[in-house]
Simulated scan of single mutants.
Amino acid sequence: MEVIYLLVILWYGGLFFQTFFLHRYAAHQTFYMSKTAEKVTYILTWLFQGSNYLSAYGYGVMHRMHHAYADTEKDPHSPKFDENVLKMMWRTKNVYQDINQQRIEVDEKFTKNVPQWLAFDRIASSRISRVIWTLLYVLFFLQFATAWWQWLFLPVIILMAPIHGVIINWYAHIYGYVNFKVKDTSKNLLPFDFLMMGEAYHNNHHKYGGRANFGVRWHEFDPTYFIMRILNRLGVIKLI
C-alpha cells in the first residue's frame, strides 16, 4: 500500500503546485504572493515534482505562448498539428528547453513579470537532481513494493508532470464538452474534476484565462481555487 500512497501524494501534490504555482501564478498571475512565499513555493514544487520538476519561467512563458497561438503551428502543443501524443510531448520538451536555456528569442509580452529563480532552477532542473530523485523512487519501490504490478507505477512517478500535461494538452483538446465558443479546440474534459484539480475545465480556462476559478457551472468544483481561497484568507496569497 505504501507505493499507492506515494503515487497519490505525488500525483496530487505535484499537480497542485503545477496548477497553483506554475499555471495560475507564473503564467496568469491570478494572485500575488511575497518573494519569501514565492521561494518557499519553488522549493515545495521541486519536492513534490522531483524528477519531473518544471521551471516556473519555462512553464509560464510556454503556457502564455499556448494561449496566444492555440491550435496553430506556433502552439507548443496541439493535437491539431502533432501526429500523435509522443510527437507532441517531444515538441513540448524542445520548446520548454529552448525557452529555459534562452536558445530562442521570445517576445517580451510572454516573459513580462514571469518569476524566475535562476540559481535554484540550475539545481532543480539539473540531470543530477533528476537522477537522484529517480534513484530515491527506485529505492522506495525496492523497500515497499509487494507485487510486480506495483512497479508499473514507477515510470508514472518519474514522468508525472509530462503525463499531467498530456491529459490536458492532448485529451482536453479532443474529448469533453464545451461551455464557450473559443477560437481553438479546448474542451472541459470532466464535468467534475476529481482527477486534475480544476485543470480539466480547459474550455472555461481558454475563455477566461485570467480567472483564478476554472469552474463556471454549478457542478464544476475547482479544488485548487478552494485551497487558494483558504490561503487568501490566511494571508499567504492575495487573490486578484
Results as ranks from 00 to 15, higher is better:
Y208V: 01
L190N: 04
D75V: 01
K112P: 00
Y53G: 03
R233W: 15
L10V: 02
K183G: 10
L154T: 06
N213M: 06
P115T: 09
V85A: 11
I163M: 13
F221N: 01
F20R: 01
H66K: 13
W218C: 01
W148Y: 10
I227F: 13
T36E: 13
D71R: 02
F194L: 15
Y96I: 04
E2M: 15
F180N: 10
I99V: 15
P191W: 15
Q150Y: 11
M89Q: 12
S51H: 11
H206K: 04
I132Q: 05
H206V: 03
E38I: 04
F110E: 02
M88P: 05
V106C: 02
S55E: 09
V8K: 08
F140Y: 15
K238S: 10
R24G: 06
I167Y: 05
L190T: 03
V61A: 06
Q150N: 08
N84G: 08
Y175G: 08
D71Y: 06
N204I: 04
I9V: 15
Y42D: 02
W151N: 09
H173E: 03
Y171V: 06
K187Q: 13
P223Y: 01
S125Q: 14
R217M: 13
I163G: 03
I227Y: 05
L136T: 08
Y32D: 15
Y69E: 07
W46D: 07
Y225K: 03
E38C: 14
K112Y: 09
L86V: 12
D121W: 10
Q150H: 13
W11A: 03
K207H: 14
L195F: 12
L189Y: 06
S126P: 09
S78V: 01
G60S: 08
L44D: 05
F144Y: 15
D107A: 15
A124H: 05
K93W: 12
S129F: 12
P191L: 13
K183S: 14
A145D: 04
G58F: 06
I104D: 09
M62I: 09
Y177H: 07
N204T: 06
Y42P: 02
H205T: 04
L190M: 15
N94S: 14
N100D: 07
S34A: 10
W11F: 07
Q116E: 12
K80T: 11
W151A: 05
E2P: 04
T41Y: 03
L47N: 07
V236H: 03
P76D: 09
Q49R: 08
V178N: 07
K80R: 12
R91I: 04
Y208Q: 12
M65T: 02
I240N: 14
A119T: 10
P115G: 09
I132N: 00
V3G: 04
G176H: 08
G215Y: 03
R122F: 11
Y12E: 03
G50N: 09
W46R: 00
D184H: 06
R217D: 14
L234A: 12
R233C: 03
T224M: 06
I168H: 06
L189I: 10
Q49D: 05
H23L: 07
V40D: 05
W148R: 12
P162N: 12
L231P: 00
V138M: 11
P223T: 06
F48C: 02
F16A: 02
S129M: 11
F140W: 12
K93R: 15
W90A: 12
H77S: 13
T185K: 13
P223C: 01
G209V: 14
M1D: 11
A37V: 11
R130V: 04
